[in-house]
Design a protein around this nucleic acid. Structure first.
Lengths: 301, 301
DNA sequence: ATGACCCATAAGGAGGCTTTATGCCGGACC
DNA sequence: GGTCCGGCATAAAGCCTCCTTATGGGTCAT
């Protein structure tokens, strides 16, 4: 079978010279080609000479008022024009395509509790941008996945990435009002231990109870879900299945309409936060800038 | 109407980077592409990075054992391959075409009296070379005419051109035996003046008569043809219309078979000669080398 | 005859491209 | 589970291509 995976290097011409040849062949003028290419006429002359040496034949006849293509030039010019047309089109399409599809991965919680409600306004503001939203618990590696931006939680320091803090990942217990009423109301932190604790292995529980001055060493032994995603725990809490420890900013709506209540003002904060991240090098890519600017503005509201 | 004569420069990608991208996309490996392109893996990495910055999006995902094309890369790769295929083919064709057609201009005399008889052996020796033979009295300007080699007479010094001496342009009177018999034989130079002199304005006549010690100041006043091409004068001489002054080497055949006779051993030589010339810069073009080598070998016989 | 236009050429310089050298990461293989 | 290996990334340094400036030659037009 023919070896499609190789291409003889020697059969490809010097590309810079070919680009110049294309311009000259269209204008039939070194000077005009030079101005199109934004270089000097001398440079054009040089490149044509180089190409003529490589081809082994003159490509233009130098007539007094104008130049004309030799036979060799006539054979070459149409193909070169076609090749550059294809190239230019594909390159432009790649740039446009690269500008037209925005791929964002986020942690599930942020997607469902914050982003989902607001993404519409971004789409309206940028109708030419298609957004592909993926949720993933893995930390995305921009070198391995075809992703433009990510929203993740963490400390905010990742090498090679630019990070903007979106929300502090604070945490405080939340539960449904009905569940609270079922034990006659939750009046002090220790009351919570009388209820099912959702994801009791979460370090947040330990930290919060300790901050609240409540002994809770038996937490890890409790049966629990360890779902690890606030959205799931929140749904369980709303359904009255137990107490969840959640980030306030992500459940403003639920707290406001009473689906969840926050029984204590005490809020834990381990310094983690939700961050918007993307490769430093792509800081100025238009679609990335657009999403970043929109998201930071929304957050500021 | 669309301006077909211009092409936005900005829409063309950096070509060297594109060439590298093509190789990488085919191999799906930086290292293998580097070896195809005969450069280092680091250089490939650099070029891909450059292109990715220009496109505004990553083109490859770096996975542990291999790389894969991103969406942007997948859009770009087929078109790039196609463009290079067209380019490579056209370039190869131009080179081959340039090698396949040999264009020679010669002065008429040399063509008809020397070259015509022998060109066949060149064609046999180089069956892949098509020869286009043009005759022209003008001195060909290689910058203005699509010509590979020229045969011309002169002093052998032309700037920018390489010249090989073919024949000395000596000269001596010749005529048909019948014409000589018509005046009872040509026994001494002055006898010639009793016959029609073909092209009497030719400086060669003056020089030859003067070398022969014959007074000939009335030559220029004689009616004559001044055709300026030996082939014509030779034909007239063979037909018995007069005496021509010709170069021996070009009429060996006619002298041998008696269509012409050379009545005197005295031969003039003004230092001119027939030369094979071609642009110095194209000294090593295969077809030029082939023709030159063949012609010089033929001459040496 | 002189000016205008166009291409060719030489010399000089900047920067893109390449190489060398090294690091990092992940997988494979004991 | 440590070590090796394969593959890409990165930094520094040198080269060489390519471009510019400057000038010349040749032709056509005024």
């Amino acid at each position: 079978m023919p070896d499609l995976s190789s291409r003889q290097v020697s059969q490809l011409p010097p590309l810079q010279a070919i680009r110049v040849f294309d311009a000259v062949a269209r204008h039939l003028s070194f000077t005009k080609a030079a101005s199109e290419l934004a270089m000097t006429q001398a440079a054009v002359s040089y490149q044509i000479k180089v190409l003529e040496e490589r081809v082994g034949a003159p490509l233009f006849l130098r007539r007094p008022r104008q130049i004309v293509l030799t036979e060799a030039g006539q054979r070459l010019a149409p193909a070169v024009g076609e090749a550059f047309a294809i190239l230019g089109q594909a390159y432009a399409a790649a740039r446009a395509g690269a500008d037209g599809l925005l791929c964002v991965t986020t942690v599930l919680t942020f997607a469902s509790n914050w982003l989902a409600h607001r993404l519409g306004s971004f789409q309206i503001a940028h109708p030419s941008l298609a957004v592909r939203l993926e949720t993933s618990s893995r930390m995305t590696d921009f070198a391995r996945e075809d992703v433009d931006l990510a929203i993740r939680s963490g400390g905010g320091k990742w090498p090679g990435l630019e990070a903007h803090k979106l929300l502090d990942a604070d945490f405080t217990p939340m539960l449904s009002p009905k569940l609270a009423a079922s034990i006659g109301g939750v009046n002090e932190p220790a009351d919570l231990l009388r209820l099912p604790i959702l994801d009791p292995g979460d370090i947040w529980w330990t930290e919060w109870f300790s901050a609240a001055g409540v002994h809770s060493h038996d937490l890890a032994r409790r049966p629990g879900s360890s779902m690890g995603a606030q959205a799931y725990e929140a749904n369980a809490a709303i359904a009255g299945h137990g107490v969840a420890i959640l980030t306030r900013a992500l459940f403003k709506a639920e707290l406001a309409d009473g689906r969840l209540i926050q029984p204590f003002d005490l809020v834990g904060d381990d310094g983690h936060a939700y961050w918007l991240v993307y490769p430093e090098a792509r800081r100025n890519v238009p679609k990335i800038r657009a999403f970043r600017d929109w998201l930071l503005a929304e957050i500021a509201c």
